[in-house]
Design a protein around this nucleic acid. Sequence first.
RNA 1: GCCCUUGUAGCUCAAUGGACAGAGCAGCGGCCUUCUAAGCCGUUGGUUGUGAGUUCGAAUCUCACCAGGGGCGCCA
Length: 587
Amino acid sequence: MFEAEQERIGEQIRTYCQTQGLTLEAVQWNWIPFSGHWGISLPFFPIAAQESRQGQKINVGARAQELAEGAAAHLGLPAGFERVEAVRGYLNLYFDSGAYARRVLEHVRQEQERFGSGAARGEQVMVEFSQPNTHKAFHVGHLRSAILGDTLARILEFAGYAVIRANYPGDMGLHVIKWLWNYQKFHKGEKPQKDITQWMGQLYAEASRRLEENPDLEAEVRALYQAWDRREPEIVALWEETRQWSLEGFHQMYDLLDIRFDRYYFNSQAEQPGKVMVQDLIERGIAQDERPDGAVIVKLDELLGLKNEKYRVMVVLRSDGTALYATEDLALAKIKFEEYPQLARSLYVVDVRQSLHFQQVFKTLELAGYDWAERCQHIPYELVSLPGNVVMASREGTVVLLEDLIREATERALQVVSDKNPDLSAEQKLEVAKAVGIGAIKYPMLARENAKTVTFDWQAALDFNGQASPYIQYAHVRANSILRKLGGDLPELTEPQHELAPAEVELIELISRFPKEVQRAAAELRPLCLASLGYDLARSFSDFYNQCPVISAEPAVRAFRVHLVAAAKQAMANCLNILGIRAPEVM
RNA sequence: GCCCUUGUAGCUCAAUGGACAGAGCAGCGGCCUUCUAAGCCGUUGGUUGUGAGUUCGAAUCUCACCAGGGGCGCCA
C-alpha cells in the first residue's frame, strides 16, 4: 500500500551502498516482527556476505550491523517515518504511526468492497474445476475441486484477471450406460424428486449392485453401449433427458454453495473432435497406430529423446477405436483456445493423481505444434479422506453425501443461532445458519495447503469454535454491532490523537497487508494465504474488541476507533467474500 | 524399478531463505451489572522424521536414508 515510499528509500540505500563500493541488487523489504509498531525491515547480511566472498576477512554479522548503521545515518529520518534503527544487522524503519493509521483507514474507506483488489490486468484466465460425473452422487470428496476452483477463480478475479469459470461434467461413459440400463429396466417413467443427485446416485449404486450380483446382465449393458454408439434416437433422447436431471441437481448444489460457472464443456462433446485429433497425430507421425493388436499411443520419452522415463507412453485411443479421457482432453484443450484465443492461461483444477496424465496431454499438444500448449497448467490438489486414511469412493460405499453434510451443518448452525440469538426472525436465523454451515464446510478445505490431504470428520466439520470460519464471521458481526449501535455517518477521519494501543497497531497492520496477500494468493494459486489472514484479522479484531472500548471511549478516541472498526469489518468481509464465504451482519 | 508428494506440540494445521518456530483442538484454572461468552485471559506442551551439504543465516534449498500416500500402454 506504500510502495512508492519504500521504493524511494530503497533507492537511497542503493546509493549508500555504492558509496561503500557495494552493489545492492533487489531491495527486499520485510515486515518487522514482534515490534508493536509498523514498519519495514531490511537485512544487511547479504551485502556483508558479498564482501566476505570477495575475500575480505570479516565477521558478517558485525559488518551487517555496521552497514545498517551507516545506512541509517545516510537516510536520516525520511518523511513519513518516525524512527530509524539498526538492530542486529537489520535496518528497521518505523512509519509515522498517526499518519500511517489514518492513511490505511482512509484507503479502506474509499475502496470499500474493492479494498484489496488489484487493477485490471487485461489478462484472461480460464479456471476449469468441479468436473462431476452425471448420473452419480455428489459426495464430500467432490467438494474440494468445487470449492478450491471457485475460490481460485474469485482470487484471480479480485487480483485483476478476467476469469472464465469452466465446468467439465463427465456425461458419458460406462457409468452412464449402467445407469440408463437400470433405469430402463426397473424405473422406467420415474422422475427425480427434490434431492436429485441423491436419487441419481441411488440408482447408480443399484445398477452396480445388480450387475455385481448377476454378471450375466452385463451383456445387456454392452448392447446398450453399442446402441449409444450407433446413436439410436431413443437412447440419445433418454440420455439427454436424464443428463439434464443430473445437471439440475448439480445446479442446486452449486447454488447452495454460492458457486457459479460461465461455461460448460461436456465430455461427450470432446469425443469426436478428439478422434479427429488422434488421426492427425497418427498422420504426422507423432502417434503410433498399433491397431488391431495394440492401441494408438504416443511414445513421449522416445520422441523427446529422454534417457530416463518421465512422460512415458500415453494411450490416446483404444484398440477398438473408442475414445479415452486422454482423447477427449486433447480436444478439450483445443476447443478452449479456439473459443478464447486470448487466454493467457488455461488452468485445470484436478486432483493430484492425474498429474502425469496432464503432463502427457500438454506435452503431446506441444509436440503437435500448438503454441498455446504452454499456457495450460494443471493445479493439483489432494483428496478428501475419512479418518483412518479411507478414501471416499462411491463403489466402496465410503462416502459422506454432500446433501447430508450441508443439511447437518446448517441444522447444527440453526440450533446454535436459535440458542444464542433467539430474537432474530426465523428467516434471519435460517440465513445465518446457511452462512455459518456452508462457511464451516468450506473453510477447512481452503485453510490447507492444496497438496495436503483434508481429513474429513464430522466432529471437526461441525465444530464452530476456534480456527474456523464462524470465528471470522462472528468477529465481523461484532464489528457490525458496534457500528449499528453508533448509527449514522462516520465522523471525519483524522490522525489518532491518543497513543495507539498494541491491539490497534496490530489490527491496522493486518488490514494493510490484505492487498499484498491477495496478489500472493493469486500468484501462488493458494487460498491458504487468505484463509490464514482472515483468521488473523478476526483474532486481532477480537483482541481489540476486548481491550479497546469504542462506544464508551472519549469522543476523540471514539471517532478514530469507529473508523478502525469499519475498516476491520470491511477487510474481514472482503476476505470472506474472496473465499466464497458469506459475512453475516448478525448471528 | 522409475516419478510425484507428505513428514513441525498428544491431535489438526501455520510460518515471503531471515531476528525468540506459531495458532486451533484436546487438558487444567479463571472471566458475562461493561460495544453479542460462536468470545477472552492464564497454563502445560518442540533435538521441525534421520544424517550430511549449500548459505552470513535452513522447518524452508540440494543429496542420501527412513516412514506414510499417490502415479506409472488401452480406468476416469
